[in-house]
Computed example of a mutant assay.
Amino acid sequence: MSASRRYSRVRQTLRWIAAIVLAVIAIAAVAIETGTLGTEGWGIAAHPYRGPVSDHFDGARFHTVPPTPRNTFGDLLQWQTHRTPDRWIDQPALTPNVPPQVDGARLRVTFINHASVLMQHRGLNILADPVYSEHAGPFGRFGPIRHTPPGIPFDALPRIDVIVLSHNHYDHFDMPTLKRLARRWPDAIVVTGLGNGAPLRAVGFRHVHETDWWQSVPLRNDVAVTAVPMRHWSERMPWNVNATLWEGFVFTSPDGPFLFAGDTSAGGQFMQIRQRFGPMRFAALPIGAYEPRWFMKRSHMSAEEAVDAAQALDAESVLGIHFGTFRLTDEGQFDPPRLFAQTVHRRGLPADAFRALQPGGEWDVPAEPPGIAHTVH
């Protein structure tokens, strides 16, 4: 065999190896979000939570109530080998949004991207599940790529007083972003689930609260935040599946409660939240990453299920989140907001109260109707 032919074969072999490595990275990054595999620990859940047994913790692992069966790796392979995902296109950057200061009873919400939301109320700037990396994956450099620029550039963020982190999947718990936030606002109050605190303290946050479901943390200006149950999971490595807790957050104030759900499948948790806190003034609910339903129904709500959740909450204003930034599943890029709006129209609900904003879109959420009492238990 000539040297040129040997060289050609070596090059071809290297190409195949590179293709296999990239395919493994891509599948594994999707698997993180779908709860079947983990590829990155790097300090997250390196020290899994240990504490008393409860109705959702067996002493080593957390689980939903009632427990939800997990998709298997075989399910993942079946989906990946038969999927026909919609082609996504990059969206142009919109005019950068620079949020103003918000005081008093006003509640101003800005959709940044995916599940990242800025909520401003009573002088507090609350940042939920911030993700500014180009990829939803290891180191912010691998995995699903961003198709939509953040609606608020990082350097245009206002002073951040509170950060809430719903769970440790890459598209919600982005360590490169959190490191940047810790350098700029180390005294921000960070609230997250049990077991997630170590990496946050390691990057420099000074006020980290690891919360169990229904546990509250006082903030400032008569505002508090309570962790509430959601139907999801956590994972960064195969050996720490559900080693840390996932949750949503209800913020309570004299002006009425509002909810950031993070990531969840459908379930009775929304009625529980309604029973404890009363009708929600506002709720941010996930509407994307739901196809194929046979695989995703255990992990993510469809747009129609999000409207069901809003009605169970008696939510007066609802923002659809968790769509349009990273292609995680098989629905079309623009399907979630379209189906969300169609469901609202079909049920005769007020369209102006159910919104799926473009990144950078702002919403001055109306004050609750007078006479509604909210009680925290």
Rank of each mutant, 00 (worst) to 15 (best):
R9Y: 15
V10D: 01
R11L: 15
L14P: 01
A19S: 15
I27G: 02
A31M: 11
I32H: 03
T34P: 00
T34H: 06
L37P: 01
G43E: 08
H47A: 11
P48R: 07
G51R: 12
V53I: 14
S54I: 13
D58R: 15
P66R: 02
P67T: 10
T72P: 03
T72C: 04
G74W: 14
D75W: 06
Q78S: 15
W79P: 00
P85R: 14
D86R: 15
I89P: 03
L94M: 11
P96E: 07
P99L: 09
P99V: 11
Q101H: 07
D103T: 13
I112Q: 03
H114L: 05
H114I: 02
M119N: 07
Q120R: 11
R122N: 06
R122G: 02
L124D: 04
N125S: 09
I126S: 01
A136F: 07
G140S: 04
F142L: 15
P144R: 00
I145D: 05
R146E: 08
I152T: 14
L165N: 03
P176D: 03
R180D: 13
A182Y: 08
R183H: 14
V190D: 08
G195L: 08
L200G: 02
R201P: 03
R201W: 05
G204E: 08
D212G: 15
D212P: 02
D222V: 00
V223S: 01
L245Y: 10
F249W: 13
S253W: 10
G262T: 11
D263H: 14
G267T: 01
Q269Y: 09
Q275P: 05
R276N: 02
F277K: 05
G278R: 12
P279L: 09
P286Y: 13
I287L: 00
G288E: 10
E291G: 01
E291Y: 02
E304T: 14
E304D: 09
A306N: 01
A309Y: 13
A312I: 08
E316K: 14
S317I: 00
L319H: 09
L319I: 09
R327K: 10
L328Y: 00
T329Q: 00
E331G: 10
Q333W: 13
H345M: 11
G348T: 08
P350T: 05
D352S: 11
F354M: 04
A356P: 02
Q358R: 10
Q358S: 12
A373T: 15
V376P: 06
